[in-house]
Structure formats: C-alpha cells, structure tokens
Amino acid sequence: MKTLLLKKEEVSKLICMRETIDAVREAYKAFSSGKVVQPDYIGIDLPDPRGEIDFKAGYYKANEIISMKTSSGGFVDNPAHGLPSGMGNILLFDAMSCALICAMDGSLITGLRTGAAGAVSVQVLARKNAKKITTIGTGNQARMQIRAINEVMKIEEIHAWSRNPATLSRYKEDIEREFGIPVVLANSNKEAVEQADILITTTRGQGPLVDADWIKPGTHIVAIGTDQQGKQELDPEIFRNAKIVNDSIEQCVTKGETWHPLNKNIITRNDIHGEIGEILLNQKPGRENDTEITIFDSTGMAIQDNTTAFKIYSNAIENSIGTSFEFF
C-alpha cells in the first residue's frame, strides 16, 4: 500500500481558511455526537531554553481515519540552526487496516484549525453587531484568528496589545497590509480589553493578563493560549458570571483556562454551559442576549486535526499532489 508524503508548501496549496472552518465545525459536531475516540493528549515540557511538544491522536468513525499529530513550540534557539521555533507533523492511518496512508507537515494545520476554532465560536457566541476585536498577544496565532474571523464577520477595528513593542508594530503593519483593517496599538492591556466586542487571547501567559473589571457586558472571549496546567491568561473571576463553553469539557477542566476558576472554587463543573459541539448540534443554546459575557475555552483537539488533515489528503488525491512511497 502506498503512503502519500505532503510537504509544507504542498499543504499550503491544498486547503483554504473557509474549508478549514467547515472541517472544524464538523469536528466539534462529531465529538459531541459520540463519533470520536480521542484519548487524552500527551504534553512534554523540556528543560529551558527548549519548549514543549504535544501528541494528539484521534479516531473518527465517519471517515474511518486515525490521526496522530506532533506539535512543538517555544524552541527559541531553533532559528539559529535553520529550524522554526515550532514544528508539527501529522500521520493519517486507514482505520480498516491501520496502514499509514499519509504523512504531512502539520505546522500550518495547527495554526489554521486553531484560528478556525475561534471563528466557529464567534458564529454562535459573539453578538451579531460585534465590530471591534482585541487581541492580547500579536504572534502567528493572533494573525490566524483574524484571518479566520474575517471570513465570518465584518471586522471594523482591531485593538492590540503585546509586551513586545517590536512585535506589536509588526502586527499592525501585517494586518493593515493584508486586510486593510485599522489596528490601534494600545498603551496597556487594560486599554485594549476595554474596547473589545470580541477578545482574543493567544499568549503563553503564566498569570492573568485580563482583569474581570475590564470586560464590558456582551463581550465574547476566545481563550486560546492555555492548553496545559501552568498556563493562564484570564482572571478567574471573569468566569463567575459568564456563559462558559469548552471545546472538550474533559480537557478544559484539567488543562484549559476553565481549570483556574474551578481550582479556586469560583465555579463548579455544573456552571459550565457545555461544549461548542452541543451548540452546533442545537442541543444547547448559544448566545441568548446582547449583555451576557461568553467564554470559549479552546484547548485544541485531535479531531480538529483529523478532519482538517483528511480534507487536505482528499484534495491532494483529487489533484494528484504529493509524493507516494512504499514502506514494504
């Protein structure tokens, strides 16, 4: 049986953001429909100055594909050796035989599907009249969030804050050049947050960067950065009176932003509204009024990689892209 190899530049030509958003919506609905087998992911923190590596695996009964993704980040010394600071790889297996059918670069997929996750949450949890986005953090994922959300709503203005002035300045230049959306550079995180209709946090924070008192009624929060214990971006008090939506409750209560208010007894597990897949399946309501504060805690799931990578693989087969090889 032949295995298809897809390099990064090939992967980039085989899927667009709109297709990724559709794949992530499918993933969330599948997960909340019981069509997914997804063991707990493994995360390994390596000694400084190295970063972390995660392993996420999942089986989707509808497409009969098993996926395995490795994703690393925070390797700050890598560029000096000609390597990116973060890398990813995805393997796809035919679940009928467990034969490896595809090996592809996964670094782009992680960014795309995480950005798409924010866009899906905006569709069901943000106010329909939301116009202003604030990004706390201005790295690659902050850009991906804008690329994805721009597909599902009209963004009129972006407010941004970062600890790094140089990164903040580049973010403004990049976003305004790519989208023509004005970016306002905030003097403080408080100043940026107070402007938000939609607040996106995409940092590697290890303490709260957003205070509860700064959040105005009706804000939708997309919490991206916390996917392991030890990370934190939000004041746990924000959760006390918010509608809390998780990608996976089991992951978010142990590794996500939701863990912090649970650990401090600010909320109980019963205060979690549900999973985003349940909202997409119309099993639970999304936003119900223009004043409630909504939080989407996204820890990232293997099923997102599965549906996105399978779409890439299907497009590659259809367009005869990639290199085939045989192990046996």
Rank of each mutant, 00 (worst) to 15 (best):
V183R: 00
T323I: 01
Y171E: 02
W161S: 02
T219E: 02
P84C: 11
T307C: 14
N246P: 12
D290V: 11
I109V: 08
N319H: 13
I53F: 02
I279P: 12
I238S: 01
I221C: 04
E237H: 11
Q304W: 06
H260S: 12
R287Q: 08
M301K: 02
H260Y: 15
P39Y: 06
L6S: 07
A95G: 10
T167A: 15
F328C: 08
L46D: 15
D54T: 08
C98S: 13
A126S: 08
S121G: 15
S72V: 00
F55K: 11
F55T: 05
I272N: 07
A316D: 01
H159W: 10
A223P: 09
G277L: 13
R50G: 15
R287F: 05
M68L: 14
E250C: 11
I276R: 15
R143C: 08
A62Q: 13
D54C: 09
A142N: 06
P47W: 15
N289D: 03
A212M: 12
D227T: 02
S121H: 13
T323P: 00
G322H: 01
I44Q: 14
E194A: 11
N63I: 08
E157Y: 04
L91H: 02
V152D: 07
A316I: 02
I133P: 01
A242K: 01
R163C: 11
N315K: 11
M104Y: 06
E52P: 07
L108F: 00
S169Q: 14
D211I: 08
V152Q: 09
E19W: 03
I158S: 09
T114K: 02
I293C: 00
D271G: 05
M17Q: 14
L280Y: 03
S188W: 11
T114G: 05
H159A: 00
K61E: 03
R25T: 00
E151G: 06
K231Q: 11
I293L: 04
V245D: 04
G286Y: 13
V120K: 05
N315Y: 04
C98F: 07
H260L: 15
D213V: 09
L5M: 10
F239D: 00
V37R: 06
G43D: 13
W214S: 04
Q228V: 12
L112C: 04
T308W: 04
N140M: 12
C98G: 09
T291Q: 15
W161C: 01
N78S: 09
S32Q: 04
N315M: 03
P39N: 01
G274C: 11
S97W: 08
Q232I: 10
G322S: 05
E156A: 06
Q304G: 08
E157K: 00
L112W: 10
S314G: 07
I155D: 04
A186C: 03
